Simulated assay, not measured.
Amino acid sequence: MRSVSEQSLEDLLRSLAPQVLGALVRRYGHFDHAEDAVQEALIAAAAQWQADGVPDSPRGWLITVASRRLTDLLRSESARMRREAEWVPPPPSAAGADDSLILLAMCCHPSLSPPDQIALTLRAVGGLSTAEVARAFLVPEATMARRITRAKQRIKASGVPFALPDAFSGAVLHVLYLMFNEGYAATAGSDLHRPDLAAEAIRLTRLVHRLLPPDSFGNEVAGLLALMLLTDARRAARTAPDGTPVPMDAQDRTLWDAAAIAEGVALVTAALPRGPVGPYQLQAAIAALHDEAPSAAETDWPQIVALYEVLLTLTDNPMVALNHAVAVTMATGPAAGLALLSSLSSLHGDHRFHAVRGHLLEMSGSPAFAREAYIRAAELTGSLPLRRYLHARATACQ
C-alpha cells in the first residue's frame, strides 16, 4: 500500500475507470450494468484508499470489486440474464488488445448518431460525469442521461462483440479529436484544461496509429496524433499562476515541450508527402508552424493563411473559418479579418466568435465595441477561468 493525495487519487481513479469498464464489458457484456458496477467500485476505492493507501495493483483491485458488484446485479435479473453473465473467454481478436481502445470502437458504433457517439465516449472512455458531458453539449443533465442510456441500449441491441473492429471509422478519429479538445480546453468548470483527458486521447490515438498501415486513413491518424502532440506541447505555458489563460503570443516558449514538438513535426512531415492530404494533417502542419516559430513575431502567418485556405476546401467547419480570419488578421490586418467574421453568423452563439471579434476590434482601435464583444463572450462560456480572463480584457478596454 502507498499513501496518495486526494487530487492524485482522483486522477488515478479517473484514468483507471475506462480500463476497468472495458475489462468488465469484455468479460461479461452488459454495458449499462458494468458501468454501474464500476462507479460503485470507484466510490469504494475513493473511501478505502484514502484511509488505507493505494493497493499494489489498483486496476486489479477495481476489477475484482466491480466484478463482484456486477455479479450481484446480474444475479438479481432473470435466469436468462444469469446465463448471459457467465464468464466466457474473450474472442481471439480481443486477446491482448487494449480494452479502452475496444471500448472506444464500441462507443463509435454506426448505429449511433455522431452526437451520441461523442457523448458516450466522453462518458465511458473519457471518464467525464454525465453533468460534465451535458455542459459540453449545453443541454440539461437529465437530457444527457437519457441520451447516454439510449446509446448504451442501442449498442446492447446491436450484439456487437467486444473485439477490435476490422477497420476504424472516421467517427473514431472525430471522437478522439473532440476528447482531446475537451481535455486541452475544458468547455465548463473551474479548470482551464484537463490534462488526464488529453493524455488519454493521445494514448488511444497512438494505439490506433500503431495498428494501421501508412495508407490514406493511416496518414490522417498520424496527422491527428501530430496535431495533439503539437498542441499539447504548449499546455504548460498557456496558464498563468492564478489560473487565467495566457494567449499564445504572450506565452513563455521555453516552457513548451520540445520532445513533443519534435515528435509531432516528424509525424506530419512523414505523412504529408504520402498523400492525399486530409484535414488533420493540415491542422498539424499549421500547429507545427506555430511551434517552430522562435517567437510570436516570427510566425509565418502567410503560410498559415495558405494552409487554412486549403483546409477550407476540405471542410465547411465554421471554426476553421474563424481561425482563418485570425490568421488573415495577423498577416494583413484586422480590417480583413473583421470582414471575414461578418459571414460567420452560425457562430454567434459561441463564445469563441465573440472573443475573436473583441480581439480584432481591439486591434483596429475600437475599444468600446471590443469591450461589448468580450462581455458577450464571457456570458457564453461555461469555463470559469476563461470568463474571468474575458472580463479582464473587457475592463482593459474601458
Rank of each mutant, 00 (worst) to 15 (best):
G365H: 07
G358W: 04
H348G: 12
Y374P: 03
H359V: 14
S364I: 06
H351L: 07
E372I: 01
G365L: 03
F369T: 13
H359Q: 15
L380N: 07
S346T: 14
S346D: 14
A377F: 03
H354F: 01
S366L: 11
L380T: 08
H348Q: 11
V356A: 11
D350V: 11
A370V: 06
R371L: 02
Y374S: 03
A368C: 02
P367G: 05
A377Y: 05
F353C: 06
F369M: 14
L361C: 09
S364T: 00
F369V: 12
L361V: 10
G349F: 04
A377K: 02
D350T: 13
H351T: 09
H354M: 00
E372C: 04
H359D: 13
I375Y: 09
R352S: 05
L347Q: 01
R376G: 01
G349P: 05
S366Y: 10
E372F: 00
S366N: 13
F353T: 02
R357M: 13
L361M: 09
R352F: 03
V356I: 13
S364W: 00
S364L: 09
E372T: 10
E379S: 11
S346V: 15
Y374H: 12
H354W: 10
A355L: 06
H354K: 06
R376E: 08
D350N: 12
E362Q: 15
L360D: 04
I375Q: 13
R352Q: 07
L360M: 15
E372H: 10
F353A: 03
S366G: 03
E362R: 15
E362K: 14
F353G: 03
G358S: 03
S345W: 02
D350G: 07
S346F: 09
I375T: 12
G365W: 01
R376D: 02
A355W: 08
H348K: 10
A355T: 00
L347H: 06
L380K: 08
I375R: 14
L360S: 08
H359P: 10
V356M: 11
L347G: 05
E362S: 15
G365D: 08
H348L: 12
E362I: 06
G358I: 00
E379P: 08
E379R: 12
H348E: 13
E362A: 14
M363W: 15
S364H: 07
A378L: 03
E372Y: 09
G349H: 00
A378Y: 03
R371M: 04
A373C: 12
G349Y: 00
E379K: 04
H359M: 15
G358D: 01
A373E: 06
E379H: 13
F353K: 00
E372Q: 11
